[in-house]
Amino acid sequence: MPYSLSEIIVLFFTYAVIGWVWETIYCSIKDHHFAYRGFLFGPYCPVYGFAVTTILITTFRVSDNLILLFLVGFVVASIFEYVASLFLEKAFHMKLWDYSHLWGNLQGRVAPQISLFWAIGVVVLVRFIQPAVQRVINWEEAHTHGMLALMVVLVMGTDTILTIISVQHFHTTTKMWNERAEAYRERLRKRLESALPEEKPALAKRLDNWRAEMLDRRAELDLRLLNWNERRLVKSFPRLKVLDAKRFNEMKQDLLKHSK
């Protein structure tokens, strides 16, 4: 093993923070508004921490060979992104990215163009960024003797527990909106089918505008709005899909506007 356990933990945290800064800046510029990225509450993206530490360990023996470094980076990054997507889908019923529109994609989880970008990033990371980061970590290890790693475990472990609770609450909220939406649309459909001819145009219009009508009547229907973290997830991940809440996916942007 090229790194000690405490080094791996600090490397994980360092690149999780760097990944959060990168994604937040990039997505804020792209979307023209501040996007607080990351799945957890804190300013870090664990997926970057896991990905980079995995890449650093797997490419340690080929770091001097640019071609092998690129190829290993391509493969490892692709596998990691696929597994991360599958985990989010199975554990949280959520899909945060979807490459279905890209050529050669695999179930929308990975795509050659994206993996190529990550592979180039791996070369830059291992050859130019990691040496400087490692010097800082060597200094930190010599002075804290693993205490920073312990703090990282405590802080991020607590954050993970709180995030799981929050995401479960979010899933409950999405299912509630989804069930009420299905029931509301069904009531309108039944009224439309049995309505008098002169009543049908108005009811058809109401069925077309069911999202706006539900939101206007949310208090009457006993529907709660999204909390801060739920709004952040919807706003920061425009491609977010809740896999078992189709109607919620259709109205999430409208609901976001009303939840501000």
Rank of each mutant, 00 (worst) to 15 (best):
138 N>H: 14
229 N>A: 05
106 L>V: 10
173 T>P: 00
146 G>A: 05
162 L>N: 02
163 T>L: 08
180 R>S: 14
143 H>V: 09
138 N>I: 09
208 D>C: 07
93 H>W: 11
193 E>I: 06
148 L>M: 07
177 W>F: 07
182 E>T: 15
124 V>G: 15
178 N>K: 10
221 L>Q: 03
203 L>W: 05
131 P>W: 08
120 I>V: 15
115 S>K: 01
173 T>M: 15
227 N>V: 11
106 L>H: 01
139 W>G: 08
98 D>W: 02
93 H>N: 14
148 L>G: 02
232 R>P: 00
140 E>G: 07
207 L>M: 06
107 Q>I: 09
206 R>F: 07
159 D>W: 04
175 K>L: 15
230 E>V: 02
198 E>K: 03
141 E>P: 00
122 V>P: 04
97 W>P: 04
92 F>V: 06
227 N>T: 03
121 G>T: 04
200 K>W: 00
105 N>G: 03
141 E>T: 08
179 E>I: 09
150 L>G: 08
232 R>H: 05
165 I>P: 00
165 I>S: 09
232 R>A: 06
174 T>C: 13
220 E>R: 01
191 R>N: 11
111 A>D: 04
177 W>T: 00
101 H>S: 15
185 R>V: 11
155 V>R: 04
91 A>K: 15
140 E>Y: 06
172 T>H: 15
205 K>Q: 12
210 W>N: 04
106 L>I: 10
158 T>F: 15
115 S>C: 14
141 E>D: 11
218 R>H: 13
225 L>V: 03
214 M>R: 00
92 F>N: 08
174 T>M: 11
129 I>K: 07
